[in-house]
Design a protein around this nucleic acid. Structure first.
Length: 493
RNA sequence: GGCCCUAUCGUCUAACGGUUAGGACAUCGCCUUCUCAAGGCGGUAAUCAGGGUUCGAUUCCCUGUAGGGUCACCA
């Protein structure tokens, strides 16, 4: 049966060698999107065939990362399905079974050489500036494979391969791309080259999404499918994600961050999905900010980009901000409260009421939770909780750049008048619009800046702050007047 | 070095062979405003080079250049 007619099955098959970064996650995301788009199956398979490189805890970390962005898999570890188990280390019998078939057909043989001998061959090729091909040293006669030596693939036909890729179109590679690679290592574990093919056939995978670093070895894979007489799946090769600034493929060594760090920094999963989806794909119209549902609806493997894309954290920040704006007020409040309680320890205890009041202030100034930390570090958060202590003396007023144009000596007079006006406002009507209205006529009279600037400074102790009316509303009448009177006291001393 | 892939504003990208080469991020300017931010409006900015094919190439072909990938008992 043709792949096109089958129910779509995709898989994400990471090796448990550490955390997942944006590059890996993009591959996972595209596999997930394509499965969902086609109402197919998305499988998580762990390729743990290299015991040396395995990092404990990786599997849970990978699962947690997928869960965070909501790329829930239909089958995989902790979610047993018809293709269980999903850890390659638990499928060794399967690979032996398939290896036996190849041996029977004469497409696999025991490697008679030691590792040293092979690396000697390789060195020779290097010196001659040639690509190393093991098959040039293929032994005439081979002994039966007893499992202690590596089992090598015997390429059925040495030829040029042409194949179709949904992203790159028609691809081809010459004979030098084919070699007698190792199917099963001397430790009994299969290599990636062999195991992933066996599993993809077994699990009925129809579309393989993976990075372009696998293009070069595709002819090898095609030869294995040929040896089994099987139809290869559809290839969907994803372009690399490049390290920021540089032009190299993004990798952990280039400082690619753990995907869960973005969660910690306060990025929303829907923003991460949106950003990643747009890295190498676009919906064909000019939409940029999209929900997961919209992305799934519009997703199409035929619109995936061929060239590598750089990772731009600024744009991620912008997309995150757009998604933040789309949250309901309650969700925004919850987001801020959660972030503050988890990340900012130095703040005095705060009440839900204060969080409620300052939510719009924070929302105006952030693109992600990390900005809340910045606000706190710059003292733009703490003054909501206590009277700013940085107004030490009258000089503070005088030294401010904005005070230069003010009639400095009259500030206390202005503020005194402001207190008089504010005192007349009823507690219930102490909101920003009303405060602004009541103060406006007086401010117009003597100069808006001359009144509003010292007011803001008295309340926040900062040159830069939200507008003084909002501050007054947040603090409430009593606290507002208290802060202004304190300022007057400082000014007149 | 062999093989393979890629090439549009600084960045992500759009454009059945015919567009003043479009959008977004960033950047710059203006407006709004007591400040900062947000918001609104606007500006600067790109088809790697050279040859073909064609009435006409960002688009198709070739060459060059640049970048990337790959040549493991790693995936």
């Amino acid at each position: 049966m043709n792949n096109q007619d089958k129910k779509v099955v995709t898989r994400f098959a990471p090796s448990p060698t550490g955390y997942i970064h944006v590059g890996n996650l993009r591959t996972a995301l595209f596999s997930y999107l394509w499965a969902r788009k086609n109402k197919g199956t998305f499988i998580l398979r762990i390729e743990d065939t290299d015991k040396e490189r395995e990092v404990s805890g990786s599997i849970d970390h990978i699962i947690e990362s997928l869960e965070w962005i909501g790329a829930d898999y239909d089958e995989g570890p902790h979610k047993e399905g018809p293709n269980a188990p999903y850890l390659q280390s638990e499928r060794l019998a399967k690979y032996r079974e398939y290896a036996a078939v190849l041996i029977d057909k004469g497409f696999a043989y025991a490697d008679p050489y030691t590792e040293e001998e092979v690396s000697e061959f390789r060195k020779l090729a290097d010196e001659k500036k040639e690509a190393f091909l093991y098959r040039n040293h293929r032994p005439e006669v081979t002994e039966a494979w007893d499992g202690t030596k590596p089992l090598r693939f015997k390429v059925p036909t040495i030829k040029r391969w042409d194949w179709f890729d949904h992203v790159y179109g028609d691809l081809s590679a010459g004979e030098e791309a084919l070699d007698d690679f190792i199917l099963i290592k001397s430790d009994g574990y299969p290599t990636y080259n062999f195991a992933h093919i066996v599993d993809d056939m077994e699990m009925g995978v129809t579309h393989i999404m993976r990075g372009q670093e696998f293009i070069a070895s595709t002819p090898k894979f095609l030869s294995v499918y040929e040896a089994f007489g099987a139809t290869p799946p559809e290839f969907v090769t994803l372009p690399s994600i490049m390290a920021e600034g540089g032009k190299k493929k993004l990798g952990k060594r280039d400082g690619a961050k753990d995907i869960l760090d973005y969660r910690k920094d306060g990025y929303l999963p829907e923003a991460m999905i949106n950003f990643l989806a747009l890295l190498g794909w676009n919906p064909g119209d000019e939409r940029e900010v999209m929900s997961v549902e919209e992305i799934i609806e519009s997703f199409d493997i035929d619109r995936i980009q061929r060239s590598g894309a750089g990772f731009d954290e600024k744009k991620l920040g912008w997309i995150n901000k757009e998604h933040l704006k789309r949250l309901s007020y309650e969700q925004q409040e919850e987001y801020i409260e959660k972030f503050i309680s988890e990340n900012i320890k130095s703040l005095p205890t705060y009440s839900n009421e204060i969080i409620h009041n300052i939510t719009p202030v924070i929302m105006e100034h952030i693109t992600c939770g990390a900005d809340i930390i910045k606000m706190e570090e710059e003292g733009n958060l703490s003054y909501f909780f206590t009277q700013p202590s940085y107004i030490k003396d009258a000089l503070c007023f005088k030294s401010s750049k904005l005070a230069e144009d003010c009639k400095y000596e009259k500030l206390s007079e202005y503020l005194t008048h402001v207190v008089e006006i504010l005192s007349q406002i009823d507690n219930k009507e102490f909101n920003k619009d009303n405060i602004k209205e009541k103060l406006s006529s007086y401010a117009e009279e003597v100069g808006r800046g001359d009144v509003f600037w010292p007011l803001r400074y008295s309340l926040s102790g900062k040159d830069k702050s939200p507008d003084p009316f909002l501050l007054a509303e947040i603090f409430g009448k009593e606290e507002t007047i208290k802060r202004i009177q304190k300022a007057i006291e400082i000014l007149t001393n």
